[in-house]
């Protein structure tokens, strides 16, 4: 058999929408996984050149170093307002924000709720890692009851520090939201489901159906003080019971889409 007879098929390669660069994320961090999923979806839909990303403030402030599209970078929490500005003057562009839980569910709660209520035709990728990664692991609105962080050192006491926020459920109650789902990045099966959800969210935008948000349960091994493996297990055992994977709002026009 000569070499030219061998049929080779590429089964795995870096998406064009993902930059070929060195990561600044900690080992095991799922921000990288989420970036790749977004990039794969942009490739599959062929919309890289029509997409404008809005980076937020958090560990993913440099999302634009990885996702290979035009990008702007928003003040902490304001990405949905900035995305609104971009989308309203360039309605035929795909506009997405990429926000952490501190960014979207704490300082930016006003902007995200208002954008969803307006039915702003943008897609939001929401990374829930139960803490403020970038500033060193402080309590976030998503920190679980009893969870220790650098600003809840004895564990989140709900009597004093209040209860965690289930942000996508909350957003799903707004009529302007057409797609609001939660997925997880803790194992390959869930990662594949997450990618389908991201694809669906962009399809919602392609059809002009309004606001779409995908929450991705994520890990922050560095600030959790765990190995990546331990962190993935912790996510599965502790986060999913509080933050169930599921679809909270699915517009009927895309309910039957399959990828």
């Amino acid at each position: 058999m000569v070499m030219s007879d061998i049929q080779e098929e590429v089964v795995y390669q870096r998406p064009v929408s993902l930059e070929n660069t060195v990561t600044h994320y900690c080992p095991g961090c799922t921000h990288g996984t989420a970036h790749r999923l977004v990039a794969e979806v942009l490739d599959e839909m062929g919309i890289r050149e029509k997409t404008i990303g809005v980076a937020s403030v958090g560990c993913s402030v440099f999302a634009y170093n990885y996702i290979n599209t035009d990008f702007v970078q928003a003040p902490h929490g304001r990405a949905p307002a900035m995305a609104t500005g971009v989308k309203r003057v360039m309605p035929d562009r795909f506009v997405f924000t990429y926000q952490g839980d501190g960014d979207m569910a704490s300082i930016g709660m006003g902007e995200i709720v208002a954008a969803a209520a307006r039915g702003e035709n943008i897609t939001v990728i929401f990374i829930n890692n139960t803490n403020y990664g970038m500033t060193g692991g402080q309590m976030a609105p998503t920190t679980l009851p009893g969870q220790k962080t650098t600003s809840s050192p004895t564990g989140r006491d709900v009597e004093v520090q209040g209860y965690p926020v289930r942000a996508v459920e909350l957003l799903s109650t707004l009529d302007g939201a057409s797609y609001a789902v939660r997925r997880s990045l803790h194992d390959p099966k869930n990662i594949r489901m997450a990618k389908k959800a991201i694809r669906t969210a962009f399809e919602v935008q392609a059809r002009g159906l309004g606001f779409s948000v995908v929450e991705l349960l994520s890990i922050c091994p560095t600030n959790w003080g765990m190995t990546p493996d331990q962190a993935l297990n912790w996510l599965e055992q502790h986060m999913i019971p509080y933050y169930p994977i599921g679809d909270f709002k699915v517009h009927e026009a895309i309910a039957n889409l399959r990828f």
């Binding site: 003040p75 304001r78 307002a81 609104t84 500005g85 971009v86 006003g110 902007e111 709720v113």
Partner: peptide, 26 residues
């Protein structure tokens, strides 16, 4: 042309910020 009554001045100025990034007069 685009008009949005924002949720707050914080929202408004950041919408201006986003639209300004596209080179629009805002």
């Amino acid at each position: 042309r685009a008009f949005v009554q924002a949720e707050s001045e914080l929202g408004a100025v950041n919408m201006v910020y986003g639209a300004a990034c596209t080179g629009a007069r805002v």
